[in-house]
Design a protein around this nucleic acid. Structure first.
Lengths: 96, 96
DNA sequence: CTGAATCCAGATGGATACTG
DNA sequence: CAGTATCCATCTGGATTCAG
């Protein structure tokens, strides 16, 4: 069950969870290199997996807010572990 | 730094770490659906990242043994967390 | 602003056959 | 047994454009 496949899922989640609530274009800025096509697609998948909640705000122009669900928060620990490991790993492999 | 990309990395690591040492064809059996082509390729990547150690045994016919490196073992905790989370997740999403 | 649609190149991965 | 090579279908994801 790899819910975190796709090139950007982890970065997206990190961006959202770091700020609590985040608008579409904010995430687009946070995550370097992502296209709106991908952001849209992956957000939709995260929504399907109930990791992310989507709220439409009736502003003008319209904005959409994303935040982690409770369930999404349970991932945070695991993801940060993975991220930490990645940092150590990089040091070990690259810096030798 | 997604070292765990590819469709099978996690399953392969699980197989190896579960048994300690594992031969090529054993892993081929453990991991359901994988082809020798993929197994070979992903093992090579894991080896490059120093997660897995490869030892050629001078038996007849020749066999090759794979085991996790120390560094590979540091992943075990994180992976099993991820796996646990996956199980819970599946229950939550599928079984509602 | 949000996000869906189209187009398209390159990566991924399965089946199979072959070598040492 | 372990691994490589080839062929080929499918998937991924970037660029761009369009719509509400």
């Amino acid at each position: 069950m790899d819910v975190l496949n796709g090139k950007w899922k982890i970065a997206i989640i990190s961006s959202i969870c770091c700020y609590g609530k985040r608008r579409f274009s904010d995430i687009l800025n946070d995550v370097d290199g992502i296209s709106n096509r991908m952001l849209s697609k992956e957000l939709k998948e995260l929504e399907l997996n109930e990791l992310v909640k989507r709220t439409i705000l009736n502003t003008q122009p319209i904005t959409v807010q994303y935040e982690l669900t409770e369930h999404g928060n349970t991932l945070q620990t695991t993801i940060s572990n993975l991220a930490d490991w990645g940092v150590v790993h990089r040091k070990k492999i690259v810096g030798k």
